[in-house]
Structure formats: C-alpha cells, structure tokens
Simulated scan of single mutants.
Amino acid sequence: MNQPTETADSTSTPRAEPLLSVSELTKHFPIRRGLLQRQVGAVQAVDSLTFDVAKGETLSLVGESGCGKTTTGRMLTRLIEPTGGTILFEGRDITHLSTGKMRPLRKDVQMIFQDPYGSLNPRHTVGTIVGAPYRLQNVKTEHGTKRAVQDLLELVGLNPEHYNRYPHEFSGGQRQRIGIARSLALRPKLIVADEPVSALDVSIQAQVINLLEDLQNEFGLTYVVIAHDLSVVRHMSDRVAVMYLGKIVELADRDELYARPMHPYTTALLSAVPIPDTNRRAKRERIRLEGDVPSPINPPPACRFHTRCWKAQEICSTQEPPLAALAPGHQVACHFPENVTPAAASAAAASAAPATSAPTATTTTTTTTS
C-alpha cells in the first residue's frame, strides 16, 4: 500500500483545512476478450493514491505520459468511477455518488480540459457554451444569463462582443479562455486543470497561467493542476506530487522539491528542465533514464521505478517502499533517497530492515554530463 507514514523525527507542517481528501484512490481498467468478453487482465492506471488539498492551495500532479495524472483528475471530478479508495469533498464522501446526487456538486467542482479545440462544441456559439452551466443547474442571475456570460468573457480577457461568435473564429489561447470562463460560471470551489497550457504557444502560456493565478486570488479557488512541464509547475504550484506508473513517489512543497529532490525519478525529471544560462547548463548533470516505462498492465513488483533506476538494489524489487515523511512536509517512496539528512537516511534504512540479506547493486549508473 502506498500510504504515507511518519518517521520519528518528522513534524507536520501546519496547513489549512483540506477541501479535498483522497485515500487509497485506485482505478483499474478491465481488459476483456473473447465472445463472452471475459476479463483477462486490467490496466492499473492509478494505484493507491493518498493526498489532501487545502482550501486555496494549488497542488500539481506531474510525471511522464501514461503515469495516471489525467485519470486521477477525472476521478476527482467523478467523470469516471474509481475502482477503490475514497474521495472526500468538504468532508463528504463523493466516491460513488450517482449522477443525480453529483449534479448539485457540479457547482463546486469543475474541470478545465486539456484540448481547447476538442472541448468546445463547434456548433454552439460562445454564449451558448459559457452559459450552459447556468441552464443545466437552473441558476438565475441578477441581470440574465447573457449579461452574466458577457461579464465572464470580460473577466478572462475576452471581448463581451464575442458572445455570438463560434469557436473556430478564435485562436488556441482564446479558446482556452472560453473554457476557463465556462468553468468559472458557477463560482466553483475546486477546479481540476488538465494540462491547461500544454496546447498553447509559449507566449500565450504565460498569459493563461497569470490569468489562473489572478482568478485564484480573486475568488479563493483551489486548483489541482495536471502538467508535465516542470517550469510551468514551479511557477503556479504550492505543492507538487510526482507520479510514476500510477503511484505517487514524492510529495513536497514546491520550493523544497525543486531545491532538494529526494526520489531518483524526480531528480531525473528536474535534470531535463531546460536552463537558458549556458554556464549553468554546462555544469548541471543530465540524468538519462534507460529503457521504456513498463506496461501498467503488468507493472514491476515492489518499487515500480526499480527497472530504470540507477540506484536500484535487490530490496527494490522485493519490497515496496512506503510513502514516508523524510522531512517536514516532504514524503518520499524510496529505499535509497537522495539529499536526505543522516537521521532521515537512517529512517529510510530502517524501513529496509526486513530484508534478509544485504542489498547488492544490480543497475549501473546511467548519468551523463550534458
């Protein structure tokens, strides 16, 4: 189980009351074959995730493609049904609520989709798209739906006169702003943003990120941001959860994670972030991971990263490391973490105590200097 545990010398960082609490969240997609469509396996997209999101906080989920980020976001918004675990929103269990019971909660939980081209109906005008939440939830506004939609368009940096235009008349950045306006219509408390800027030009990305931050400050929004661009994540996150093959391998405050990554996978991801300064780039060690990401249909036993990790030893393939707090507010799932204090290193070694024999190196270093 990938459940967080506390070490003896760690202390919890005081945080606000959680708006969203996730415990052992799991999603396995069945694989069916044959005439009778019998299940012959399952894609283990997400496996035993546990985390909290405080009110007004931005938590980012990062990792390689296929690690389960989008699946997690869709479970949080109940667009897909979890296989196991619990999702608590403001203390209420929403894990298996029916469509009818979820409808009132749609006012509080919204999603910004990754594709600004595919998420807008090309047959509807902007006014119809952004005004849909008001009609679906039967919400009456003081000056009518049209005025409310025009106010939203102005809020996200569009012209109120765009009300009668169609999506194909807008650029990618403008379409994403339309999607953001739609998600804000009912003044939600939680917004799950799935790669909100990945499909946009770099110059437009900064505008949308700044817009999201301004809206958060103005309305007290809570964000769960799904992203793979670590530069974007660093700019807009309060905390970062690093996922690998359906599991969280590291969870920490943004500054702590970027300054002192402890999991080898996080270290490898950060080493790939582009650095404009040529002098700094020349001094940085570039870590290149060998091999492909294993299949989620049959993930490696114990630590799922051990097949690509340059620090892997025998215990990594036989015993799964728990997601343990090795520093205040910094949780890591690794038998041999990096950048840790001697006390934390001793605690990590203690977690490996059940091994019957001393671990021996099985994987060589794959680091090269760029």
Rank of each mutant, 00 (worst) to 15 (best):
Q3E: 14
T5G: 13
T7H: 09
A16W: 06
P18F: 07
S23W: 10
F29Y: 15
R33W: 11
L36Q: 09
V40T: 15
A45D: 06
D52K: 08
E57P: 04
E57C: 02
T58W: 03
L61P: 02
S65C: 08
C67A: 11
T71S: 07
R74Q: 14
L79A: 11
I87K: 07
E90T: 04
T99L: 14
Q110S: 02
F113A: 01
F113W: 03
T128R: 14
I129Y: 00
V130G: 00
G131K: 06
Y134I: 11
R135L: 14
L136W: 02
V139T: 12
T145D: 13
K146I: 10
V149G: 01
D151P: 10
G157M: 05
L186A: 06
R187Y: 11
P188D: 07
L190F: 01
I191P: 03
S198W: 02
L200P: 01
D201C: 12
V202R: 08
V208Q: 00
V224R: 01
I226H: 10
R239Y: 03
V249C: 04
L251F: 10
A252D: 00
D253N: 15
R260Y: 04
M262R: 15
H263G: 04
Y265M: 06
L270Y: 06
L270D: 05
S271M: 06
T278N: 11
R280P: 08
R281K: 14
A282M: 12
I287G: 02
R288H: 14
L289T: 00
D292W: 13
S295V: 11
P300E: 05
A302C: 07
T307E: 08
A312D: 10
I315W: 08
Q319A: 15
P321L: 09
L326P: 04
P328Q: 05
H335T: 09
E338D: 14
V340Q: 07
A345T: 02
A347D: 10
A348G: 10
A349S: 14
T356G: 15
T356R: 13
A361G: 13
T362M: 14
